[in-house]
Every structure is written in structure tokens, then in C-alpha cells.
């Protein structure tokens, strides 16, 4: 994995993430089709972010998922388990074959992640507005101890309509949690409509800055740009960092891209075949 990569060679690192993200997309679509349910839109908007974190950035060891000094990743948008589980399996937290049990009765791969069953999950999420405050608490524990682990939280953009998110943002800014990074999966769609037509978030970067955060923005499907942002996040700083990753729901499958209807749609056999063909063509590019 990353050990074999030259970390100074961004082209090589980005190519590795591109390959892993392509694999995650194929895997998660297969899981959703087999299960007959899921959240493909948000899974696919978050895939490149998760691939960058799990296959390059996070200092984690699947053999020691509770190691005190590990980097923490908190999936605040807990419904996007197709992406999260494929990343965890790909990183070695549990056997890849177990992905085939997604949403089956008694499976560890519940619709929303459960740390009691599944190694690599830091806190149970699902209802929106929960993971971020927990991530802030983790970062405060590190701040009290002077620990050097980093905490990353991935939130949806619609999730920022929850009041608890801004309670957490305010506290993180106040406490200057310099080892905390929040990534906003800014796909501009929530369950049934555009965020800006529902309860507008813009000017979003200004909001974070006003809460005492540093803000970076980039194309959330550009692997080199994501890795550069995460590299910069590792540099010493005295304020928390918000990365606004501009993404598209359903990215990688053209008929799903930017379509609210694929928030929790399931491809039929023909659509699934078309999606796989498109992902394979992209992989071979």
C-alpha cells in the first residue's frame, strides 16, 4: 500500500487512490444491488474522499483498531455505509468477502455503522448531527493530552442544517483544535432536493471562517487535490480546518450524477451493467 509508494510522488499517490476509488465504486454498487437498498448517491460523492483518507492519509492499523495513538476518522454522514464499509474492508479491517453480507439479517454491516460489531468504526452514527460533536470531543481529549493523533470528520452538506453541528463548530473554533479536520461532502443535494432550495447553506466558507476555522476548497473528486489538502492539514496549525470538497452525488456513474433521485435508489440489472461498464472503462483509461 502506501508504504510502497514514494510519498513525494503525487502522481503515483493519486494513481493509487484512483485505482482504490474505482474498486470501491464497483464494490459498493454491487453491495447495494445485492441488498436491494442503500444510498448510492452519497456513497459515490464521498468515495474519493474516503479512498484518500483510508488508502493514504490515516495513520491506522487494522490489527490494532483501538490503539490509543491512532488517527480517528468519524463518519458523521453515517448513512453512506456502502462507501465506508468498502473502504474499511479494502484497508483490511474485516474480510472483503463480508461486504457481500451488507444489510442481510444479522450482518455486522448494518445500514449505519456500529462500533460494537465492527472494528474501525469510532462511534455509531446514522441520525445526522452526531458524529461531528463526537469528533470534537476526541480532538479535545488529544488536546488535553498533547497527543499527536489527528481527527477527521466527514459530514454531509445537508447535515449542516442540524444545530448540533454548529454547536460543535463553535466549540472547536473556540478551543483552537488544530489537529481537527472536517471535510464537508458538498454535493449540494439532500434527500429530496438541492440544499440551496431547502435551507440554504451559502455562504458556507464564510460561515466556517466566522466560527474560527481555516477553510480550503477543492474538487472533491480530484485525488491529487484532495491529497494536497490533507497534506496541508498535517502541517502545524492553531485552528481547526474545514475542507469543503465540491462533489457530485452519484459521481462515476453518469446517469446518477447530480440526480437527487439516486439518494437511495437501487439500479436495475441493466443500469447496474451500464454502471459497471462505465467504471471499468474509467479504470482502463
Amino acid at each position: 500500500m502506501t508504504d510502497k509508494l514514494n510519498r513525494n510522488n503525487m502522481e503515483q499517490r493519486a494513481a493509487h487512490i484512483r485505482e482504490r476509488a474505482g474498486w470501491m465504486r464497483q464494490r459498493l454498487l454491487g453491495m447495494i444491488v445485492a441488498a436491494g437498498q442503500g444510498h448510492p448517491g452519497g456513497d459515490l460523492s464521498a468515495t474519493d474522499i474516503l479512498a484518500s483518507l483510508y488508502f493514504d492519509v490515516l495513520r491506522i492499523d487494522p490489527a490494532a483498531p483501538d490503539a490509543p495513538g491512532r488517527d480517528r476518522f468519524v463518519m458523521s454522514k453515517g448513512h453512506c455505509t456502502g462507501a465506508l464499509y468498502s473502504a474499511l474492508a479494502g484497508r483490511g479491517f474485516f474480510p472483503e468477502a463480508e461486504l457481500d453480507t451488507y444489510l442481510r439479517p444479522g450482518s455486522r454491516l448494518n445500514g449505519h455503522p456500529n462500533r460494537i460489531y465492527l472494528p474501525g468504526v469510532e462511534t455509531n452514527t446514522g441520525p445526522l448531527g452526531h458524529g461531528f460533536p463526537v469528533g470534537v470531543g476526541i480532538a479535545i481529549a488529544g488536546q488535553i493530552d498533547g497527543a499527536d493523533f489527528r481527527t477527521f470528520v466527514l459530514t454531509g452538506d445537508g447535515e449542516l442544517q442540524e444545530g448540533s453541528m454548529w454547536e460543535a463548530a463553535m466549540l472547536a473554533g473556540h478551543r483552537k483544535l488544530g489537529r481537527l479536520t472536517v471535510i464537508v461532502d458538498r454535493n449540494r443535494l439532500q434527500q429530496g432536493a438541492r440544499t440551496e432550495d431547502t435551507n440554504a447553506l451559502e455562504p458556507l466558507a464564510d460561515k466556517w471562517r466566522a466560527f474560527g476555522w481555516k477553510v480550503a476548497e477543492m474538487d472533491g473528486h480530484d485525488h491529487a487535490a484532495l491529497l494536497q489538502a490533507f497534506d496541508a492539514a498535517a502541517a502545524p496549525r492553531d485552528v481547526p480546518l474545514c475542507i469543503i470538497a465540491h462533489t457530485f452525488k452519484g459521481h462515476g456513474v453518469s446517469y446518477m450524477r447530480d440526480q437527487a433521485g439516486w439518494h437511495h435508489g437501487v439500479p436495475n440489472a441493466e443500469q447496474y451493467a451500464a454502471a459497471l461498464a462505465e467504471l471499468e472503462a474509467e479504470a482502463g483509461r
Binding site: 462511534t123 452526531h130 460533536p133 470534537v136 479535545i140 481529549a141 460543535a168
Partner: peptide
């Protein structure tokens, strides 16, 4: 939520 995070941090 912060309490739960502090517990995660030991």
C-alpha cells in the same frame, strides 16, 4: 457528543 468523544480518546 463531546463527552462520547472524550471517552473515545481514553
Amino acid at each position: 457528543g463531546v463527552g462520547a468523544g472524550l471517552a473515545n480518546g481514553g
